[in-house]
Amino acid sequence: MTAPTPSQTVGPFYGYALPFVGGGDVAPAGHAGAITVHGYVYDGAGQPIPDALLEFWQTGPDGSTTGAPGSLRRDATTGAVIGRNGVDFTGFGRVPTDADGHYVLRTLPPGDSPYISVCVFARGLLHHLFTRAYLTDSAEDQLLASLAPERRATLVAACERDRVYRFDIRLQGDSDEETVFLDFG
């Protein structure tokens, strides 16, 4: 196997390069089945992180894993981002945290899967972190079943009200606080 290119931090200045308008609006506009997943990203002192970048990837509502192009569709004349086409479900979202360390994702519930995949980048983080935001606490899920109850709880979003889920990410903390992050080898 060829040795991989090492990771480096995303740094503080990605804000004018990576985020794009509508990056968190994965659900087609006006879709009646849309859900909101939101929360805060915290550091080891419990302070919100205003310079984190979150990426989301998930199955389509039909359970497909193929996605679709067009997440950052651009106007060929002006180069401006013109948003998703409102028909295809691309499955991909990208949201920078705001000055409060808060993010909001509007998407459709993943089909045949209890979770949305999450990748976390931040200034100060030399290598991104993967996790899963579970919308349901599935008893059969292999990963959840393998975790101690206090660790497992960090992966399950709280249903705040109909169609609104809260999923906070803690980069560092005690075992009942710090989010479970995944190593895919």
Binding site: A45, T65, P69, R74, S117, E178, V180, G185
Partner: peptide, 28 residues
């Protein structure tokens, strides 16, 4: 304050969704 202190959980068999990924095309 930005690195996890708990060991990462090794997932030896990533699921189909994790083994696929976003796609991009000429419109992007």
């Amino acid at each position: 304050l930005r690195y996890p202190k708990n060991p990462l959980v090794v997932v030896r068999d990533p699921e189909a969704v994790e083994l696929s990924g976003p796609v991009f095309g000429v419109t992007d």
